[in-house]
């Protein structure tokens, strides 16, 4: 039986690990290459990326996009619709006011100046043409690019004959298949306040994605400022500490987790229940809830 190997690298802003039971390293190399392809294509830091071309053209003409980008934009539009406008790929412009590294709380006036630039409803999307109507508007795929990459890499591994493996892109996980003996992978769900796992979820296939106020957030004057920003107010959401969702696609799991965080403690769980996917929530008092069988 081929050995279980782990291929680690850093991409999409975090640690990546491909666990596979396979001979040779062709599969994991192809998997890493796929992550790098997506990172390069959709990076907002690279002038030649499609995202930069769209953002540079804001306020001028429409940009024609390729099929993969168009399908991602259709997906973003779907998530916008299904979340009641909370999942919004134009909200990244708020980074101009929020600097989570410097842990600075912006003035309301700074945020007010940015709000007119936010809103997928302002965008003209008529496949394959996308137009951002005002200069200064921008889109980014940070809200779902990593999850999409996890799904793509899982498909690449499967196409290379991997039957037992797992893709972990900084916590966004897609399981290609169970361990060789058929036993599930034990996925640790990050504790939002401490190191280690708050729960363990067994998974034989499909994906799990998590969102939490612990990532890149900060505490100032006793208040926690999460990096998850409400596109309507421009302020961080509060209510839930963390959400994990299981789905066939990591993309959908990630979108669902993000939407639940944005909806907060009251409406988030009901929204997840209506969606019908298994989930795990950690509320502000670090109580666990949800429908995932966990250990």
């Amino acid at each position: 039986m081929p050995p279980l190997r782990v291929h680690r690298f850093t991409a999409l802003g975090g640690p990546c690990a491909l666990h596979v039971q396979a001979d040779g390293d062709e599969a994991v190399r192809a998997g890493e290459a796929e992550v790098l392809r997506i990172e390069t294509k959709y990076s907002r830091y690279r002038d030649d990326s499609i995202v930069s071309r769209i953002n540079t053209a804001a306020g001028t003409e429409a940009v024609e996009v390729d099929d993969e980008t168009a399908a991602l934009l259709d997906y973003a539009a779907t998530a916008y619709e299904q979340s009641g406008g909370l999942f919004d790929i134009t909200s990244g412009v708020l980074r101009r006011a929020w600097d989570f590294k410097a842990q600075r709380v912006p003035a309301q006036a700074e945020i007010d100046a940015l709000l007119p630039l936010i809103g997928w409803h302002r965008v003209t999307w008529s496949r394959p043409y996308l137009r951002l109507p005002q200069a200064g508007m921008q889109i980014d795929f940070g809200g779902f690019g990593k999850e999409y990459a996890a799904d793509r890499v899982a498909a690449v591994l499967a196409a290379h004959g991997v039957r037992h493996g797992l893709v972990d892109l900084s916590g966004d996980i897609h399981v290609v298949g169970p361990h060789a003996d058929g036993s599930p992978w034990q996925i640790g769900v990050q504790h939002p306040r401490a190191g280690g796992a708050i729960a363990t979820v067994p998974l034989v296939r499909g994906a799990i994605a998590s969102s939490g106020d612990y990532e890149r957030g900060f505490v100032r004057d006793g208040r926690r400022y999460s990096h998850i920003l409400d596109p309507r107010s421009g302020w961080p959401v509060d209510g839930l500490a963390a959400v994990s969702v299981l789905a066939d696609q990591c993309l959908i799991a990630g979108t669902a987790a993000t939407c639940a965080m944005l909806l907060g403690a009251e409406r988030g769980p009901a929204w997840l229940a209506a969606l019908g996917l298994p989930y795990l929530i950690v509320d502000a008092q670090l109580r666990l809830g949800g429908s995932i069988a966990r250990s």
Partner: peptide
């Protein structure tokens, strides 16, 4: 929210 709406959009992506 409709899971089938998200699924339909996700499955339109290449390789998903």
């Amino acid at each position: 929210p409709s899971l089938s709406a998200l699924t339909a959009a996700a499955l339109a992506l290449p390789g998903l």
